[in-house]
Computed example of a mutant assay.
Amino acid sequence: MSGILIERHGDGVVVLTLNDPDRRNPMSDPAMINPLLEALRGIEHDPDTRVVVLTGAGTCFSAGGNLHEMKARSGMFGGSADQIAQAYHTSVQQLPLVLSRIDVPVIAAVNGPAYGAGCDLSLMCDMRLASTTARFGEVFVDLGLVSGDGGGWFLVRHLGYQRAAEISFRARPVSAEEALELGLVLSLHEPGALMDAALDMAREIAAKPAPALRMTKRLLRMAERSHLQDYLSAVAAMQAVAHGTPEHAERVSAAVAARAR
């Protein structure tokens, strides 16, 4: 069964699983993209969601675009140049836009190979934990293509221009160990332990005060593209709001009481 599995935990953690393991969770089919977009848009407006974990079913995170459809010039790869461009605009390019708007942390649990659009999807997340079997591949130029969903934008920001260029120009897969060395992932785990590690991190984060968590993510994303003065103005405004939240009052009272013991 293709599509997305949605698992909601009572602690505010939501697990989204790319669920087409027989085809290695392709990121070019409407049956995968549309449910994922729907789930993410729902989370965007859900105050009860605190952290999202994104992973893949089976042994692959996502192998990217469907090569058979590329060869047949069918699906989103069919039609005129204008039609193909429009298909990208309305499908996979919506993913980075939606993920950039979500205020809660999104953790990618990369359970296996993440190639092409699958690699890009992992890069769109805030943090990545990986299985020792994971591989990250910006392999577009080997297919005579570019990263159609904006993955290069994220790769440069994660690794800097020179390393992003080397990996992209050579279309060289990056092993899990190298990804850890480069800082592309936070930690490596045996396949059977990956989801436990991702959920442990998600639950730890979900236990933090929700308003401060959401505002912190907004500011971290804003830091990528704003001038310092604009950033400081936003910090002041959000901090003023944070000082008035009941979560802040509760945490300060608890901290004061702990110091008095």
Rank of each mutant, 00 (worst) to 15 (best):
I4R: 02
L5C: 02
E7P: 00
R8F: 01
N19K: 13
N25T: 11
P26T: 08
M27N: 07
S28L: 07
D29L: 15
A31F: 02
A31K: 10
A31E: 15
I33S: 08
I33H: 10
P35W: 11
L36K: 09
L37T: 10
E38H: 12
G42M: 10
G42R: 12
E44R: 15
D46H: 03
P47D: 15
T49M: 03
V52Q: 05
A57I: 12
G58R: 09
C60D: 13
A63I: 14
G65M: 14
G65S: 13
H68C: 02
E69N: 14
E69M: 13
K71Y: 06
A72T: 08
A72L: 13
S80A: 08
D82F: 10
Q83K: 15
I84M: 14
Q86S: 11
A87V: 07
Y88L: 15
H89P: 00
Q93W: 02
L97A: 13
V98N: 03
L99S: 02
L99A: 02
R101C: 06
R101S: 11
I102A: 06
D103H: 06
V104R: 06
V106P: 05
V110T: 03
G112L: 03
A114R: 03
G116K: 00
L123T: 07
M127R: 14
A130E: 04
F136P: 00
G137K: 00
V139Y: 00
G144F: 01
S147Q: 11
D149M: 13
G151V: 05
G152M: 08
G152N: 07
R157M: 04
H158V: 01
G160Q: 02
Q162F: 05
I167A: 04
F169D: 04
A171P: 00
R172Q: 11
L180P: 00
H189G: 06
H189E: 09
A197H: 05
A198C: 05
D200P: 00
D200W: 01
R203H: 06
E204G: 03
R218F: 03
L220W: 03
R221G: 07
S226T: 15
D230L: 11
Y231R: 09
V235T: 10
M238H: 14
Q239I: 08
A240P: 06
A242Y: 12
G244A: 13
T245S: 14
T245G: 12
E247V: 09
A249K: 13
A249E: 13
E250Q: 15
R251M: 13
V256F: 08
A258I: 02
A258R: 12
R259V: 12
R259P: 00
